[in-house]
């Protein structure tokens, strides 16, 4: 198991944003994390990646208890993530953004080696022609790919993708899904992805985890989850849901 999450919960003052989430993630899988808005998906990412300290439970990454660790230590241990709302380092160039990922990520590279990695990763996410542009000047789709490139440059074992498809046009979605698939096959990276574009997440994921109001309501293969009654209820009780989900 690359990641074990046991009974993780997070409370903000009086609000229980997340409670009792438990799952194991074997190496090499893609886990889709779905659920309505406000279900606690990003909160779960924050608890896993060290941005928040969980109020309850335990997170184990590659056999090490990392509950409440700092985000920069998690990056060093080989966990990388993207942000739902993109956070480019605006006044730095695209290439410099990716170099930051390579320099301070798992492999802790020096600048010249990090530069080579950045060039390779930018090629991979098809941003190489934008290398010297300021990151702030990219459009949303390009910024999403920049987030991806920064995360990949860290050479992570586990990649947390937070809605990398949101706000993209159909052709960009196809490109991004392709990239996600290639990450697994070519780079041997385990992935958890939060996604609202259902047909894409159904298509890509090995397993799905469904959150609703901070609780884990279902887990299983895409087919199992799509036919799960609780899940259908959570998604406004749409009886045709399963069909829609599978066909997109």
């Amino acid at each position: 198991m690359i990641l074990q999450v046991e009974g993780v919960g997070k409370r903000f003052g009086g609000l229980q944003a997340l409670s009792d989430v438990t799952f194991d993630l074997p190496e090499g899988q893609i886990l889709g994390l779905i659920g309505p808005n406000g279900a606690g998906k990003t909160t779960l990412f924050n608890c896993i990646s060290g941005v928040y300290e969980p109020t309850d439970g335990r997170v184990t990454f590659r056999g090490e208890d990392v509950t409440g660790s700092k985000p920069y230590l998690m990056a060093r241990r080989g966990m990388a993530r993207t942000h739902q709302i993109v956070r480019p380092l605006n006044e730095l160039s695209v290439r410099e953004n990716v170099i930051v990922g390579a320099c301070f990520g798992r492999e802790n590279h020096r600048l010249p080696a990090a530069g080579d990695i950045a060039d390779e990763v930018l090629e991979f996410v098809r941003l190489a022609d934008r290398s010297d542009q300021l990151a702030g000047s990219l459009n949303v789709g390009q910024k999403k790919r920049l987030e991806m490139a920064r995360a990949l440059a860290a050479r992570p074992y586990l990649l947390l993708l937070d809605e990398v498809l949101a706000g993209l046009n159909p052709s960009e979605i196809v490109m991004m899904v392709e990239i996600v698939k290639r990450i697994r096959t070519e780079r041997n990276v385990t992935i958890i992805m939060i996604e609202h574009v259902m047909h894409a997440v159904m298509n890509v994921s090995d397993r799905l985890l469904v959150l609703d109001y901070g609780r884990q309501i279902a887990e299983g293969t895409p087919e199992e989850v799509a036919n799960n009654e609780k899940v259908i209820e959570a998604y406004l009780g749409d009886p045709k849901l399963a069909e829609r989900l599978m066909t997109g």
Binding site: S49, V51, K70, P71, Y72, L73, A75, R76, A80, R81, H83, R87, L89, V100, G101, C103, F104, G105, R106, R150, A154
Partner: peptide, 9 residues
């Protein structure tokens, strides 16, 4: 915050 997530201590 983004820098910390990328591993900057």
């Amino acid at each position: 915050d983004a820098a910390e997530v990328m591993g900057v201590n």
